[in-house]
Every structure is written in C-alpha cells, then in structure tokens.
Design a protein around this nucleic acid. Structure first.
Length: 567
RNA sequence: CGGGGUGUGGCGAAGUUGGCUAUCGCGCAUGGUUUGGGACCAUGAGGCCCUGGGUUCAAGUCCCAGCACCCCGACCA
C-alpha cells in the first residue's frame, strides 16, 4: 500500500482526551478514531491488526478441535429472561425493535449458545464440544476509559464448552488454557495467569490472563519467592500475628469524638493499629451482616460475598446503621449488637485479647474487648484483602507484591447453572437426562490491541510484534531524485510479488517527517532507499525494536527479508 | 449514577471589565527554494465560536435550559 493514498494519516499532536500511552499512539498513528464515548472506528491500520489477531486466535483454537460459528448481536429479551440475567446485568442495553419486540444487544453469548446446545445436542455421543465465535459485544458501561482499554462496543473471542460431566469440563478447560497460552505466545505478548473470582458469572474455577501494566484496572498479587499469583479479590495471605496480653482486662468505654480513621484512633487511645477493629454493616441480599476486620486490614468484598453465598453485597446506609446500633457510622462494634445480626470476623481478629472496637454509642469506643466474655464468639473466615508485603499463603515465605494488570482473557468453569436455567440436557448412556456441564472462555480482542501497545512501545511510538503488525515491512524512499524514486517503485512491486505486506511511504516529505511517522506507526522492519544508499546499490535496514541500522545490498534484500519473517 | 471540568477551522490552543473584520501554532492547497530525524519563503482555502432560549444598542464573552466529551469515584456478565 502506498502511504500517499493511505486512509488515516498520522497526526503530530496528541488529542487531549488521551491519557494512556496506547490510546495516544493508536490515535496519533491513525489506527483508530473515536466516534463517541467508548465507541471506536478501526481505521485500515487498526483493522489490519484486529484481523491478524482474529486469525491467530481462530487458528490456535481450531488446532484444539474448537469449532467456529457466529451468533447474532441482537437477542430477544425473552432468552435473557430465562436465565434471569435480563434484570441482573446492568450493562445490558435493552431496546424495543420497530416491530415492538423487546431486544437486548448482546454483552456476552451464554444464552444464545446454550439455546443452540439444547436444540442440537441430544446424546452423550454429541459431547464434548467446544464452540467459538469472534463477535462484537456491547456493554453499556457507566464509564468508558483509556481508548481501547475499556470500550462499550468491542470485539471478543468467546468460546463455550459442553461436557458430560465435571471431569470432561476439566479436560476442555485445560485444552482452552493451553490454547490461550499458544495464542499469547504466538502474538508475542507476556501474560500473567492469576486465580480470579468468577463474579456474577456463576461457576467455580476461574483464571484471568493479564498483561502487567500501570494503566491496568485489575490489581493482582504476585509472590516474590514462589509462583503464587492471584487477583487481589481472591489472593490469600498470612496476616501478621502480634503478641497478646495473657489476662483479660476489664472492658472500658472511652470517648473519641471526631477521631477519623484507625491511625488517629489508635493514637488517640494509645493502642496499636492492629488492636483496633473496624466493624462494618453489610446488606447481603435481604440480610444485614456485621463484619469485623482488624484495623490494619481491609475487607475483600469478593471474599465476603463468596463466604456468605449472597448475590448482592453493599455497605448499608447510615440510616440502617443508626437504626441497628443506635450510633453513627464509625462507632459500630460487636458488643450489644441485636442478637439476630449475623457477625462474621476475619481470621486476623481471632485469638486477640483486649482489643478495641466501636461501642455502638455516638463518639464512644470500647477498649479491652474480648470474645465470649463481652459478646458471643462470631464465625471466622478469610475475608481480608491482601496487601503489599503480606506473607504469601502459597509458600509461606515470600512476600506478596501488588501489580496492575490489564485483563486480556478470562476462563470460567460454569458448571451446570446455565444448562439448568435453560434446560439444556442430554441423554447419558444410562438413559437418563442430565444437564450439560459448561465452561466459557473469552479474550477481548480490541482490548488486546491496547495491551500489546502498552507493553511494547518506546518514546517514539509503537513497536508491533511481527505476528500482529499491520504491515511487516515499511519501505521509505527519501528525496525526489528520479532514479531513486524509480528504484523504490520497482522494489515496492518486487516485494509485493513475494507476498510481503508492505507499506510504501512514497510521500514527498522530509526525512524527519517520514522517519518519525515510521517510528510512530511501529512496523517491525523499515527499509530505506535514498540517493546515498542507491549509490552503493543498497538500502538501509532497520528493525523497529533495535537501535542500530545496517546497510544491506539490494541483491541480498529479498533473501534477508524472508529470513527476517521466518525468524 | 454522584462530584469536577471542557466545548472556538482537521489537531492543539488564545480571546481582558461584553465593543471594530474572531487570533496564533500545527496541518491542508498552490508556486518556488530545500531534502538522512518533524526545512524555508510567498500566496491561499477553510468558522452556525456545541445547540436552543434570554439579557443588551451590541454576546465567543453574561444568564437559563439542553446536548456532547473528558477526569475522579461508584459500577464493570
């Protein structure tokens, strides 16, 4: 392609809305254009990259026996009512068709694929099967950010496995995990796999594939000694154990008006932060639950939600706090709570003696509080969010460190929940009808583009891995000299004939403009022809990811390119 | 959805207590001189100053309403 005729040129100045590096470069280099908040057009450069990734994914999945299909983006609302997700998924865009049918724009395709399965799979002989599509998704997020990092409409690879039983699911799941590693390896991007929460997807096991990056919205914990990795929501760690008093002291009520925060409170009371207690009231579905957390830790709402087995979990309103405890937020404690309130304490609270807690009385705290003597011993559970430098629960030696990560892919073992909601059954070899066991597997393809740029760029622009670059070679001609331009035109045609994807910068612009644009766009190999190189019957050879350029004879060029591409 | 901010040629910006023909840089077009890291000169094109109301002799500027976008937070199968 001749760059002079190419649609979507570079721009020198960064549009002000862009903050993330990938967003800046992708906009400036002409890969994408923003239509509206969270909605992007893929220009020819961007579309090329998208297509490359799309192809790699499909090929790698096919190798594992995955079958490709395509399902609609518009779904009848009735299907979503079957699983109950019509009212539960709040990013769901609902609309009424011109004919008056209630519809949704698909944020994911469990409903449609399960519908297909129940209509086409009859016996255990039809199982296992894994179906995949690379299809657009629409999620009406409250807020889109960071260019392609979080959009409302995005291309997603989503696969769904159907098995006879849990053992079969494990095999399908492992197959997909292996395929994902093959995909990311082939693209040439380093991913970190962490244990994650399955969220409202339901199901048990879940893993996230992420790229470590400061702009990532996910927080993951990595152990510096072993290979333990987990999403912060899920990460398990050992808490610090402090020596405790041998004897219980009498409980005492102390005033602490306008003392905000555990640090200030600990200082005010003259106690250690770890002996203070945050008591929080959560609305867990219909029940109010009191949660005790040691002052130096925070509650992981994910862990708490999983422990309680509830769907919705939120802090209660200040009105509810007042009604239940008689005090304001900030002075809640376990002592004298109404008997019917369930109390869950984090494991870090266990075995403490003479600790502090709110007194359920405005401006007052209790010190020297003790379990059993002052209030019934609550249930204990790990509901603590791990923090930087916590001791790893995996090896018990290393420290956990927090990193931000961009979630690229997510795999879930769904189990039978969708099959049960939608009656997707098969007849097993014992003649009995059983629900299919499902898994689902997704990669955000458009987000992956941003992830690649985030992890592969320099101060001049993007550095595309060969596997997904929009073109593999950029041919640059410098100067207007007729002989040079003529030779460059010829070379361009020769390269095209060998099947190399070439972007030919034939513009009548200065060297600075063209070289800077080439750096920005980030095509892996740059071949430059000028009167200077032509004199020596050669070209300049510059690999984008390397610092130094070299001179290569024109007659050796094609062979060298072939070698470069094969490497 | 709560809080904050911004809307001025394609991009980035300036525009004072309301006051003359809306300004600058980049980009674009034409001609010329240049040509290995964002060249120079000359000429030129390109504007519903987000939209709609209002105040005023006079509105890009003030007031009201709306729309869009951005940032922080909540949300994110």
């Amino acid at each position: 392609m001749r760059y002079s005729k190419f649609f979507g040129k570079t721009q020198k100045e960064t549009p002000k809305e862009a903050v993330a590096v990938s967003h800046k470069y992708l906009l400036r280099a002409g890969f994408i254009h923003q239509l509206a908040a969270g909605l992007y057009e893929f220009l020819p450069l961007g579309f090329n990259v998208l297509s490359k990734i799309d192809k790699i994914i499909k090929e790698e999945l096919a190798k594992k026996g995955v079958q490709h299909l395509l399902m609609p983006l518009v779904h009848p609302a009735s299907l979503w009512k079957e699983t109950g997700r019509y009212d539960k998924v709040d990013v769901l865009l609902k609309f009424t068709s011109a004919r008056g049918t209630d519809c949704v724009l698909a944020p994911t395709h469990e409903e449609t694929v399960t519908d297909l399965a129940r209509k086409h799979i009859r016996t255990y002989k039809d199982l296992p099967v894994i179906l995949n599509q690379n299809q657009w998704k629409y999620r009406d997020e409250m807020r889109a950010t960071g260019g392609l990092l979080r959009t409302r409409e995005f291309l997603m690879q989503d696969a769904y496995s159907f098995d006879r039983d849990k053992a079969g699911l494990d095999i399908s799941f492992d197959k997909m995990v292996a395929a994902y590693h093959a995909i990311f390896d082939r693209i040439g991007i380093e991913v970190v796999v962490v244990k994650a929460d399955s969220g409202t997807m339901g199901g048990s096991d879940s893993q996230e594939f992420g790229v470590i990056s400061e702009v990532g919205e996910d927080r993951i914990m990595l152990c510096d000694k072993c290979d333990y990795k987990a999403n912060v929501e899920k990460a398990e760690s050992k808490f610090e154990v402090h020596t405790q008093d041998k004897e219980m002291k009498p409980m005492k009520k102390v005033e602490g008006k306008d003392i905000i925060g555990v640090e200030a409170l600990a200082a005010h009371l003259g106690v250690d932060v770890h002996s203070t207690t945050m008591t929080l009231l959560f609305q867990a579905d219909k029940e109010v639950v009191a949660v005790m957390m040691r002052g130096d830790y925070h509650v992981s709402e994910t862990k708490l939600r999983n422990h309680l087995g509830c769907k919705n979990l939120n802090l209660t309103t200040p009105e509810v706090v007042k009604k239940i405890t008689g005090a304001e937020v900030g002075y809640v404690g376990p002592v004298n709570l109404p008997k019917e309130i369930r109390v869950v304490a984090d494991l870090s609270c266990k075995d403490r003696v003479n600790f502090e807690a709110g007194a359920n009385e405005l401006y007052h705290h209790n010190v020297n509080v003790n379990f059993e003597r002052d209030f019934p011993t609550p249930e204990f559970a790990d509901i603590r969010e791990s923090k930087e430098n916590d001791i790893c629960a995996g090896c018990g030696k290393g420290k956990l460190h927090m990193k931000n990560s961009i979630e690229m892919g997510h795999v879930f073992k769904l189990g039978t929940c969708y099959a049960e909601w939608m009656k997707a059954n098969y007849v097993d070899n014992d003649g009995k009808s059983k629900p299919m066991v499902m898994g689902c597997y997704g990669i955000g393809i458009s987000r992956l583009i941003a992830g690649i740029v985030e992890s592969s760029h320099d101060e001049k622009g993007i550095i595309w891995p060969k596997s997904v670059a929009p073109f593999t070679v950029e041919l640059v001609v410098l100067g207007k000299d007729e002989a040079v331009v003529k030779r460059a035109d010829e070379l361009y045609k020769e390269l095209l004939e060998t099947g190399v994807e070439v972007l030919y910068d034939d513009r009548d612009d200065s060297a600075g403009v063209k070289l800077n644009d080439a750096d920005l766009i980030g095509i892996p190999l740059r071949i430059l022809l000028s009167s200077r190189t032509l004199e020596k019957d050669s070209v300049e050879w510059k690999v984008r990811s390397e610092k130094e350029a070299e001179i290569v004879g024109l007659k050796d060029l094609k062979e060298k390119i072939a070698k470069f591409l094969a490497a």
